[in-house]
């Protein structure tokens, strides 16, 4: 089995899906000749031609809006937004068109499209190359939102997203693009959207995270284990719709929830998960669910690493829960 980085897994998923289904096509800034600024689409224009891998004008509204029309007309477009921070000029297309097309037409028209975007911090990118805007998407009915953290999942989830009949925002933590390699099958497999993965089984505390901070979360879990605590670690993978069942089952077992995300705290996915657990498991909780999140500031440059959930911050919060 070949080993792949996360970015290679993306390329492999796109390649396989384009080979499997001629309706699948790519569009975005620099995705063709250049192969994308992160090289996610490297070699695909040479292989499938400039009509199926379109170097678009520098316009997120054009990319996302055209994807809506392509999808409504029967294609399966995969749009790349160069950085999640730059989705905003195209947000009307995503929110007013893609998200609501099925609903506003009473199911007559649909927009089965994938919007890939590098997300999150850790690359010294300042506030316009580091944000985690998933809450905006999760808050918009009609969109599904995936945030990946491993090469294996990335390939299976991207293939599932392309075959999904709804618009899927597919977020790729850029600091993980080349951080790890793991075995990724070269054959066809899918990972269902909406299903979390239990990364570590344990009984004392449930750590729930997704995307970039999965790295710090797992590291913190190792340190906790070394100190005699037995944490369970859940990777949500999909934040809309998030896997409530898996989270509730785990917290029912451990009685403690620590939710970790690098997105700003205010009105966040982390807030939604902790609120739901509080509502549904109130009488089984041994401590109030806590959140470790990014801060409610614009994403800073100099404090790049400090902004994101650190292992120390995760361990401190876990200690509060365990000592409660």
């Amino acid at each position: 089995m070949p080993t792949m980085t996360l970015i290679q897994a993306i390329n492999s998923a796109l390649d396989e899906e384009m080979g499997r289904d001629e309706r699948v096509m790519l569009l975005g800034e620099d995705v063709g000749k250049r192969g994308g600024v992160f090289l996610a689409t490297e070699g695909l224009q040479q292989k499938y031609g400039p009509d199926r891998v379109i170097d678009s004008p520098l316009s997120e509204a054009a990319i996302l809006g055209a994807a809506v029309g392509l999808a409504a007309h029967g294609m399966r477009p995969v749009a790349e937004i160069q950085f999640a921070d730059y989705v905003f000029p195209g947000i009307d297309q995503l929110f007013s068109q893609a998200a609501k097309l099925r609903y506003r037409s009473g199911g007559q028209f649909t927009a089965p499209m994938v919007v890939r975007m590098p997300t999150g911090g850790g690359v010294k990118g300042g506030h316009h190359h580091s944000q985690s805007p998933e809450a905006h998407f999760a808050h918009t009915a009609g969109l599904k939102v995936v945030v990946v953290s491993t090469p294996y999942d990335t390939k299976g989830l991207l293939k599932a997203a392309i075959r999904n009949d709804d618009p899927v925002v597919f977020m790729e933590p850029k600091r993980l693009y080349r951080a790890v390699k793991e075995e990724v099958p070269s054959d066809d497999y899918l990972i269902p959207i909406g299903k979390a993965a239990v990364r570590r089984e344990g009984s004392d505390i449930t750590l729930v995270s997704y995307g970039g901070p999965m790295v710090e979360t797992l590291r913190a879990a190792e340190e906790m284990a070394a100190a005699g605590v037995d944490p369970e670690v859940i990777d949500l993978r999909t934040v809309m719709p998030w896997d409530k069942e898996t989270v509730l089952n785990s917290v029912a077992k451990t009685g403690r929830l620590l939710m970790i995300s690098e997105a700003p705290r205010m009105a966040s996915v982390a807030s939604e998960v902790t609120a739901t657990v509080s509502e549904e498991l109130f009488d089984q909780l041994l401590a109030p669910p806590l959140r470790v999140t990014g801060f409610d500031t614009p994403y800073p440059l100099a404090q790049d690493k400090l902004y994101m959930p650190t292992v120390t911050r995760i361990l401190n919060a876990a200690k509060r829960l365990l000592d409660y």
Binding site: I54, A61, A62, L64, G65, A66, A67, V68, G69, L70, A71, A72, H73, G74, M75, P77, D92, Q93, S96, Q97, K100, L101, R104, S105, Q108, F109
Partner: peptide, 20 residues
């Protein structure tokens, strides 16, 4: 294509359909 209130928001989808 079902009308959307958001002014001009249907112009890029029309372009996309035409590309298809």
């Amino acid at each position: 294509f079902t009308v959307c209130s958001a002014i001009a928001s249907h112009v890029p989808p029309a372009a996309g359909a035409a590309i298809s």
